[in-house]
Design a protein around this nucleic acid. Sequence first.
DNA 1: GCCGTTTTCGGCCCGACTGTTTTCAGTCG
Length: 574
Amino acid sequence: MPIRNADIAAILEEIADLLEIDGANVFRIRAYHNAARILKELGQDVRTMVEKGEDLTRLPGIGADLAGKIKEIVDTGRCKVLDDLHKRLPPAIVELLRIPGLGPKRVRVLYRELGIQTLEQLRRAVREHRIRSLPGFGEKTEMHIADALEAHGGGVGRYTRVAADQYAAPLLDYLNTVPGIDKVVIAGSYRRAKETVGDLDILATGSSEGLVMQRFVEYDDVEEILSQGPTRASVLLRGGLQVDFRVVPKESYGAALHYFTGSKAHNIAIRRLGQERGLKINEYGVFRGDKRVAGDTEESVFASVGLPFIPAELREDQGEIEAAKAGYLPKLVELSDLKGDLHAHTKASDGHNTILEMAQAAKSHGLQYLAITEHSRRLTVAHGLDPVRLLKQIDEIDKLNETLDGIVLLKGIEVDILEDGSLDLPDDVLGRLDIVVGAVHSRFGLSRIKQTERILRAMDRPYFNILAHPSGRLIGRREPYEVDMSRIIRKAKERGCFLELNANPERLDLVDSHCRMAREEGVLVSLNSDAHSILDFRNLRYAVGQARRGWLEPGDVLNTRSLKELRPLLCGTR
DNA sequence: GCCGTTTTCGGCCCGACTGTTTTCAGTCG
């Protein structure tokens, strides 16, 4: 089993965690965490880079030492530093760090004083009240640990954006009625359009802070108050979502929004830039000595370090600061740029609405064209279409188009890519369509090579236009299938076909790093709803968010084209 | 452990809240 970026990152994380417990230099620890993050977010395969002899120290945050350790991990699957740490500290001990309220210092005390190295041993010690007498611990801390152990493994993970929206919307409505609150906005990873969020970070500006905070924690849906001060509070909502709420004075809005939006790595990089200029940047503003020089708006914060405004979705310390410095920030795609949708279902397969209803809904979302792409026959559970039914639908769409105004329907199919890479419908049928979307719906467990070859063969078929949901993942439910995305992107370039970014909030593949790879190769990405009902066109905003995280401009997106511009692009594979 | 329009050494983002402490460490974001 070849080692992946995530595997290497996990080893580096474990080293960092153990170093922390061991009491190592905090900056050394940070370097390991940082390197792990870089590898996880890297769009390309580190193993391949190592095998090609590429210079890893060109990656920001990777120096000669870490480059050597990464190479060691790629070559041997292990790392001597980690092996050495395991001689001093039990491997399971890093699990204790996952308990909220337990950091490296306390974990070390637990281990040194009581020999605790597993969650089970910690549970027993809590039951026997042996924690409270430890130095730095007390009765309350012991109770908090007991609660945290109770909650641990309770399945509180990350929330998809659509799930978070269901909590956020009513909470924002409520906060907007609270006297003393001027502005309320969601910051954090939600604002950066991450595909999942661990919590909601809400920022408000206002004056009477204490009162505002009181009203926040009195919100109906609050189940537990985790902490509460005059400017900051954290609560758990019913259902488990954590909300962090922060109130700052009006003039600090920009600085606070920037700080609270993150990411952490981006903030550190920006604050470091400030430092170089003799500035101190915190959530209240930008300061030169005691003098406040910026912070009303985010623009003013960026300007203070000589940068233009950086859109929230780019703030990952993934090159956006360098791009901003050089004047190469992308002008990111927006929802209003989309002119059509190239993947939708109707009652004919597994959708819930008629073709006409879908057309009208698409039009009401400002779209000018909509491709009807039912499943093909192989997908029997979805009532996939055989040639006869598909030809019938083609006639139906032709007739409908004669009556429709302001929206054009494209005749399409979401054809199954079979295990051998052939398509589920014959070429002479596919040739009668405006658009062919291909997708993998079976045999997710193929090896990376077989899965990749299967998809590449399908892309080589005539009429193949778009590879739908290219990784097949369902966030939190199904891992992506093993596939070499860089080869697929190169094949798309070679064949003149396109990759879908599926707007279903549980799919959202392509992921951001693959969007960037496609952009760099010059392969257009299609932002498709995969709508199964008239309600699903709303999901297009999630695809736009992901596309923006992937640095995509309107020109990088297939369906920002007018129908007239689109048609010749769909003939590229014929 | 990384990094360099003053640096190859000496820095490394910054503040809020909690609990245990009697002046602050630990944790978190």
